[in-house]
Design a protein around this nucleic acid. Structure first.
Length: 209
DNA sequence: GCGATGATGAACT
DNA sequence: GTTCATCATCGCA
């Protein structure tokens, strides 16, 4: 599979949020380490202006400076005392904007992801923004990391048909909650908001009896 | 099965 | 001191 180039990312944030769906996020744990891959099934757009939920809403700060950087870099931040979030910077350099990765479908390196997460449940490995960063070993050291280097990148995948893409308000925010800027692959069992319905059948084999 | 709540750290006012 | 773009666990049904 071919890696996506900078031109793919330097577009309006809402466009990028949709274009990323179906693409494959790849995390390399080093020359000797495993390759961790996941298909992007859920994203959220965070713009600079006119978006009170965005970290860049009030202008640039030391924390959010990556959102103003070149498209195709990672904006990582720590929140709620225990979770890292992974965002992909969009827009031309100098214009703030980023797409939050909310959920992946594990494809490769699943054994390592289970170790990182401390659970066997496949549907719980990367079905949430805090979960996927732990599963892929994404931390502060990747702040500002380019997606065109050797530690992480995104691989091309066939474009999704428009009818496969769902839209809804964003999750877990308290401002600008009416904006429908969450995008997801409709019907995927790996989405983050499956708190309704069969939330994993507690499989017969629980880890560590 | 379900909703409520505590954990826990850093940026920002 | 307050606010979080969250998760896992606890208590109750």
């Amino acid at each position: 599979m071919e890696r996506l180039d900078p031109g793919f990312f330097g577009v309006p944030t809402l466009v990028l949020a949709e274009r990323l769906l179906g693409k494959v996020f790849v995390r390399s744990m080093g020359p000797e380490g495993p390759l961790l891959k996941g298909r992007i099934v859920e994203t959220e757009a965070y713009l600079g202006e006119e978006d009170e939920a965005s970290h860049a809403w009030r202008g640039q700060t030391p924390r959010n400076r990556a959102m103003f950087g070149p498209p195709g870099t990672l904006y990582i931040y720590f929140t709620y005392g225990c979770h890292h979030m992974a965002n992909i910077v969009s827009e031309p350099e100098g214009v703030p904007g980023a797409v939050l990765l909310r959920a992946l479908e594990p494809l490769e390196g699943i054994g390592q992801m289970r170790l990182n997460r401390g659970t066997e449940e496949l549907l719980a490995l990367t079905s949430g923004p805090g979960k996927l960063t732990r599963a892929l070993g994404i931390g502060p050291d990747l702040y500002g990391e380019s997606l065109f280097g050797s530690r992480c990148w995104i691989e091309e995948a066939p474009e999704l048909p428009a009818e496969a893409i769902g839209t809804s308000p964003r999750i877990g925010i308290s401002r600008s909650t009416e904006l429908p800027w969450r995008k997801f692959v409709a019907g995927s069992p790996h989405l983050s908001k499956i708190h309704a319905g069969t939330r994993g059948k507690k499989a017969s084999g629980r880890l560590q009896s």
